[in-house]
Amino acid sequence: MRVLTAIIAIAVGVLVLLGYFFPALPYVQDIQALLLNWAMLMIAAAAIVGVLNLVFVHADKIRRREKGNLYSAILIIFLFGTFLLGLILPPGHEIMRLILNGVIFPVEAALMGILTITLLYAAVRLLRRRADFTTIVFLVTAALVLFGSATLPFGENIPVFSGLATWIREVLAAGGARGILIGVSLGTLLTGLRVLFGIDRPYGGN
């Protein structure tokens, strides 16, 4: 079974790659489109499995009376409530929009607000945890960019910091970011090749 799954995975990977590199070959693009459509269908099916997994995990927490099980109960009640409303009401109905605009967006905005304070606190703690040259450069750069981006009460940026922040963003940060992204791309390429060769099998094989 493990060999069969590996053969299927490698064959599908090779066929999709052929579609990208040799689109002129007969049938190759049709096969690629078919396989990608199947992948889309599987992702939709996986979303249902994912929701079921979420329900099972939280139902288990309620059954075992684990810490925080009240939140699990609230999650399950609202999940099924929203699901039922989604089935009964037409798309774009006012109640569905209210759930989205009145609950989901504000909660995400609140989490973003908490994150801002969390990051500020993390920056303060960073010097205590790891007081080395890299940390100092990191914090000084962050402070310079913040001062450069902040506006004065009468509506203008701080003159010197503004130009410095732009230079840091467009020269130093952009260069560094490209370097990091090249490294990430190379890592992604090699990881993909290991999966394509069946060396790594994230689909369950040993």
Binding site: T118, L119, A122, A123, R125, L126, R129, R130, F138, G179, I180, L181, G183, V184, L186, G187, T188, L190, T191
Partner: peptide, 13 residues
């Protein structure tokens, strides 16, 4: 900023 030791860029891989 927030972990003891961090991995940068391709070190993830």
């Amino acid at each position: 900023a927030s972990s003891q030791d961090s991995l940068i860029g391709e070190e993830l891989f």
